[in-house]
Nucleic acid binder design. Sequence first.
DNA 1: AAGCACACGTGATGC
DNA 2: TGCATCACGTGTGCT
Lengths: 152, 152
Amino acid sequence: MTDIFWNDELQRWAMDEAPTQSNEYSSSPEGAASTIASKNIVSERNRRKNLNDKLLELRGAVPRISKLDKASTIKDAIDYIQDLQEQERNLQAEIMELESESLKKDPGFDFEEELPILLRSKKSRCDQIYDHRVPMSHPIKVHEVSHSLELD
Amino acid sequence: MTDIFWNDELQRWAMDEAPTQSNEYSSSPEGAASTIASKNIVSERNRRKNLNDKLLELRGAVPRISKLDKASTIKDAIDYIQDLQEQERNLQAEIMELESESLKKDPGFDFEEELPILLRSKKSRCDQIYDHRVPMSHPIKVHEVSHSLELD
DNA sequence: AAGCACACGTGATGC
DNA sequence: TGCATCACGTGTGCT
């Protein structure tokens, strides 16, 4: 029962792995149809594989994982991003505070020359690439979006 | 041509929306089969919808978007997370620097009392929830993972 | 046993 | 035109 299925599957695998190249559009119209169908199948497989790998990568970038399914992976990533953004705001506020504090005690203090060049330049570079001082009220919860993108 | 397809689709919609409830397992075995099939279909739809919404939310949390397809969405999220992590490391290093600088000039300075309580406590809370001082060498590229999770 | 999460092939659509 | 992306229904496995 499952044998024919298995044979079919293995045949597809072999066909996919080795393009054989003998006869594209093997002279019969049905052959053409099945050929384009096969191409579609392979493309889809690659697309799915790529998506899965990306998701695994994303999971690798997020330290705290709740569950192992796709939805949770994305959810955890969202929460993590939000926490990182909040953390960054806090750290920046803290830096402002420290700088002003230091300035109060020692007016005319130049911070740009104080810190190691590497740190400063790196930070500046990031800020230029994109300015992620996120807007205070962050529109994370998107209830209705322009329905241009829908996912599988 | 597409008319029959549309009729079929609308029929399914109606069937899904209104369970009709008249006869579960409508006495015929084929009816039972089609019923469980329908349940499967609806579950799948909900699952897909949920996943798409999550992905849109993720896109909403990421400021810089390259393209509008699923793979790019995830990719952008990964890059963004890594940038945020690097940024956080830099900011923290900067704070350390500033604190030690301030300490040099004024030994016995208590930072815990200096900053507004709100900022300090918030930051501490985040650090408790999870300690994301990421390990210096970060294992983003996962080549071989326990193959328990694969995505659609 | 019943529900959930998944991978797959397929047809449609857009560039 | 072909190629890429998508949503869908279906079968399978795990719990």
